[in-house]
Amino acid sequence: MLEPAIAAALAADDQHIAVAGAGGWIGLATLDLLEQALGDRIADRVSCYGSATRTLTLRSGRELQQAPLGALKMLDARRIWLLHFAFQTKDRAEAMSEQAYRAVNDAISATVLEAATTLPVEAMFVASSGAATKANDPLASPAMRLYGQMKLDDEDRFADWARVHGRRTVIGRIFNITGPYINKHQAYAIANFIMDALADRPIAVRAPREVYRAYVAIRELMSLIFALMAGRSTPVARFDSGGEAMELGGVAQVVARTLDGGSVERAPITDPVPDRYIGDDTVYAALRRSHGIKAVTLDRQIIETADYMRGLAA
């Protein structure tokens, strides 16, 4: 659940929370957290938008209706907080032409920007990505550079919106997160490790170089986001998701120990160039502490993520 004080503040307030990109991992996890904070009032206080009309089912069994993103501009509410998770991610950049990928994300951003400009949106969260740091990295793949550049463009677009219109934008570069609704289990290292541990298989770390990641729980991250959205000190607040940087061999050892899994098989390091995909934890930790948000330990993150993945398997 959200940090109790932040959940209580949300429950006591009356702003409407619009979630764009509600059907993705972060969107669904956020809806789950909002349900815990708001209870049955979620039906009146929260609206969902995405690529198409569909029913979203939360872990509790509650069903929420998602409307097409274009319907966002017709939202009738007096005060609005807008969470912008809608974006085609790197895997889509790998599968589409650059022209098509740019066109679809530009259309998404234009739709959200139009709604944010015309509606009484007080505060907005823009889910950027750690990929923004790879936009000009010659060692990154073309898809990663393209995805990162378009995330940078979104950061600038919505920062300008806040300054021009006297609103509030919180921009978070999200690197590595854990928790319920995690998807792409084969693609995300920690999910892959958890799958191996739950199946009582050796955890295989195959990367031929040192790979460093730092993880935060989605409930910790969203607690900070809601706290920052309530702030009024500056029109734009930016931060990276943080966490303790660890090499994947060490992460695998923590997964195995926490879940009583088997051994860890770490491939030899033959490539001298490390892979580091981590945010600025110094700033993140200071922000977290200033808002009274407790850090979720890595072993607790693993337990919560594994509980969700067990439920999927069942």
Rank of each mutant, 00 (worst) to 15 (best):
T53C: 11
A115C: 07
P120F: 13
S233H: 00
D271C: 06
L248E: 08
V46A: 01
A127M: 02
G24I: 13
S60A: 06
I174G: 00
R289G: 13
R257M: 10
N136T: 15
A143Y: 05
M150A: 02
G172S: 07
L75V: 11
I225Q: 06
P120K: 04
G39N: 09
D153I: 12
D40S: 09
T270R: 01
M124D: 03
K134I: 08
L2F: 12
S129A: 05
G23F: 11
R78V: 15
F125W: 09
L119P: 04
R238W: 13
L31V: 13
P180S: 13
Y181H: 07
I302M: 05
A123G: 05
G148H: 00
E155W: 13
A8L: 05
V170K: 00
Q88M: 11
Q99A: 15
I190T: 02
D299A: 04
Y284D: 01
L119T: 07
Y215V: 08
Q99L: 15
A245E: 06
V273Y: 14
R310P: 01
A77D: 10
S223L: 08
D32K: 05
L75H: 09
Q253G: 01
A285C: 14
L221A: 12
E3I: 15
F158S: 00
V126F: 08
D44E: 08
D275N: 12
D200K: 06
A52V: 15
G172D: 06
A12G: 01
A22Y: 04
G172I: 01
R102I: 13
Q15F: 15
F239Y: 00
S233I: 11
T178D: 03
E35Q: 03
D156R: 08
L2V: 13
S51T: 14
E94R: 08
E155I: 10
Y308D: 02
L287Q: 06
R102D: 09
S129M: 01
R257V: 08
V19Q: 00
M309A: 07
P180T: 09
R79P: 01
D299H: 12
D307I: 12
L119N: 05
A207N: 01
K90W: 11
I269M: 04
Q186K: 06
L28F: 12
E35K: 02
M1K: 09
R145M: 08
E98K: 08
E244W: 11
A189W: 09
I194P: 00
G24A: 14
A37Y: 04
I218D: 03
S128V: 05
M74W: 15
A110G: 03
R41F: 11
D240S: 02
